[in-house]
Design a protein around this nucleic acid. Structure first.
Lengths: 139, 139
DNA sequence: TTTTTAACTAATAATCATTCTAATCTAGGA
DNA sequence: TCCTAGATTAGAATGATTATTAGTTAAAAA
């Protein structure tokens, strides 16, 4: 993967294109829904002075800029470069997360990687509860 | 709420009916998807010696016995007495969680409490990924 | 009912993920 | 090239959860 496109990607979104940020985005492209530990390992292998705090800082900037979405499982956070609302499959054994792709034509729903054994499904809606509908906007 | 039914409820599931466990189950019935802090506050108000560690221990016992399910949001855990697979609404402002009830006849999906403003929905499937299908069973 | 025992409780310490702090550095505009 | 707001760094601090351990108790056996 070339460096130039990622730096442009960042600047296009009003973010300074530091080497650390490029590495974090690379890590996000390299793995499926990595957690902080995975991203840190990727970046530190390529820049030994990389700090864990920087990974957290960068991920929070990316989230605030609408570049990544955050998923919570088992008290850990996982990051996904796809920010449009979409769905996930999770392995109950190893915790692996994949996207579920919806076919816009057939409306069929199918997992991104085929041979998953699906045991359970649950829907999570998000919005504003009755109490919070009176003039709030922050999460 | 009477004590007797909860104690029977616990014993029916092979769990010893200690006063602490009864308080935790009461707390779970009292609030919608409480977190550990909420359960602890409820129990400690009624038994001042209640320990936070006991709340964690009891919740884990209840989970292992299939009495509660655990939900992860924002690095925190929320507990639900309903263990059958079902769906949730979450308020992006205050974090409140409610169950979504499905009508088994009409298959209509509607939130338990009416006037929620729904802004997003996402599906989470759980199962076994391709790698983990070769002789695993533990989560 | 009394005894026995395995299971439970609770205080503390330990761990893990995440956030904060304060000093230093740098990307990008002037 | 210089300037400076913003970014990075290392380490300390926080907060939720888990582990340890000694003492306690519920429930089964006698």
């Amino acid at each position: 993967m070339l460096d130039r496109p990622i730096e442009e990607f960042l600047r296009d979104r009003g973010l300074r294109a530091t080497p650390q940020r490029v590495l974090v985005v690379e890590a996000l492209m390299d793995a499926s829904h990595p957690d902080v530990e995975t991203i840190f390992a990727y970046a530190q292998a390529r820049q030994s002075t990389m700090s864990l705090a920087t990974v957290y800082n960068v991920l929070d900037k990316l989230r605030a800029a609408g570049v990544v979405m955050v998923l919570d499982f088992h008290g850990r956070r996982y990051y996904d470069l796809r920010v449009e609302s979409h769905d996930h499959v999770r392995c109950r054994n190893c915790g692996r997360l994949d996207d579920i792709l919806r076919d816009p034509n057939t409306r069929l729903i199918r997992p991104a990687a085929h041979p998953w054994v699906i045991e359970d499904q649950s829907l999570v809606w998000q919005g504003l509860c009755p109490v919070c509908q009176n003039g709030y906007s922050h999460a």
